[in-house]
Design a protein around this nucleic acid. Structure first.
Lengths: 228, 228
DNA sequence: ACGACAAATTGGTAATACCATCTGTCCGCC
DNA sequence: GGCGGACAGATGGTATTACCAATTTGTCGT
């Protein structure tokens, strides 16, 4: 029984993805930057637009890019030719928001602990600025999901583990899909607000266990609130 | 807290994927079965073939289907309408194993804490049996990856959160891909063995924080050993 | 200076045609 | 009658073209 290597029948869209990855890294494209229009890309790659779109759809499925009709296609996550994409498919009941939160708590508490160990002075300053924004915005304009998300993104960034954030982003997307952010719930925001600062303080102090505990306290409120 | 389904502008290929998932489960399609031809699918769904192909390409990127030119498109993995897709991107670096372990530590410590809160008497008995096996086997035959894995699987099972285990399984697969289980490393097994029992004891005691700490201690040894 | 409207840009979809590959069948040869 | 190869049909892969819908941008009028 000899193993005959399959002829590398590389399909066109696969080749496109590779070239695209090369292009992205060559042109120093950063996250949130805009890619060339589909028509331009197809033309410069010498392929038809449908097959170019097939390649883009694959990258979209992997969360690498995000097309916005009328505006353009944007880079959501860095893409390099040698990256390995893993896909996890987990079955999801409609009612398992609580389970998603438990997964998020696992990721976020670990990220906070790692951040406490690894955060650079600049990173700490940035995080503090975000906490400040969070607090002043709450006192002037009230609740703000964007600022909240910015804080959590920064938290994962400080953990210096892209993997954690990659998984977290998927979780976040799913949570947003069927959970309306509890806007205007003054009580909710008011109670979690000090815990954001507490988390930051423990990170600045380089106290991983304290950071973990602060995140846990934050999630305790979220889960309690979710139970109504 | 109301759960409001997002008014999301569902793109056509997304709708196709949902309908396709419904179709697959309705028609009792099994893995390795052949899907209808693209032209037929497009016709019966009332969409054009290019956009149908875009949807199929997304499913292909997620490893759900596998097209074979000239033959047909085949189902590679079960597809249900409520699947949640998580995507991890791992760089092929030396340190990526360490990052994977950090992710695993996040998942496993949380699972242990949840298990301490939720474990049923039967579940605890089963876990104890697995610890016993682990110890007796080590003293007679030495290290055994299967028993170790059985213990960890049971741990996640007790957490009563399938999501955690689904993610964990993917992580486990990846860890195995580029880490040879340190078989025969007597010192390694000897040091982690008591911590398995310690974890179990904290779970039986209903002590979530203790269980978390025990898991952390276990991973401290693993990571230290990995640094060599 | 500002706001409303219109044109240009961009992603989303459709219809159609042709090519490359595979599969199964049928015919002819041994 | 059995076996092998050529042919035809089915199927995925790609290209061309056109139109629609949403967004952005620029311009014109107030």
């Amino acid at each position: 029984m000899t193993i005959i290597p399959r002829v590398v029948t590389q399909t066109k869209s696969e080749a496109i993805i590779e070239i695209l990855a090369q292009f992205v890294s060559d042109s120093r494209l950063q996250v949130n930057d805009r890619l060339p229009a589909e028509r331009d890309l197809a033309a410069s790659l010498g392929v038809s637009r449908p097959v170019l779109r097939e390649a883009l759809k694959q990258l979209e499925a992997l969360g690498v890019i995000e097309p916005r009709p009328g505006s353009g296609t944007y880079l959501r996550s860095p893409l390099s030719p040698n990256d390995l994409h893993l896909v996890m498919r987990v079955e999801m009941e409609r009612e398992s928001l609580m389970k998603l939160l438990e997964l998020r708590r696992a990721l976020e508490s670990e990220a906070a602990a790692l951040a406490a160990l690894r955060a650079t002075p600049e990173g700490i300053r940035e995080l503090e600025a975000l906490v400040d924004i969070l607090e002043t915005e709450f006192h002037t304009k009230g609740d703000n999901p964007q600022s909240d998300k910015a804080f959590h993104v920064a938290l994962f960034h400080l953990s210096d583990n892209r993997l954690l954030w990659d998984v977290m982003r998927s979780v976040w997307d799913q949570i947003e899909k069927f959970w309306d952010y509890p806007l205007g719930k003054q009580d909710f925001a008011k109670r979690t607000l000090p815990l954001h600062r507490a988390t930051f303080e423990r990170i600045r102090a380089g106290d991983p266990n304290g950071a973990r505990a602060a995140v846990h306290a934050m999630f305790a409120i979220v889960e309690e609130d979710l139970r109504e």
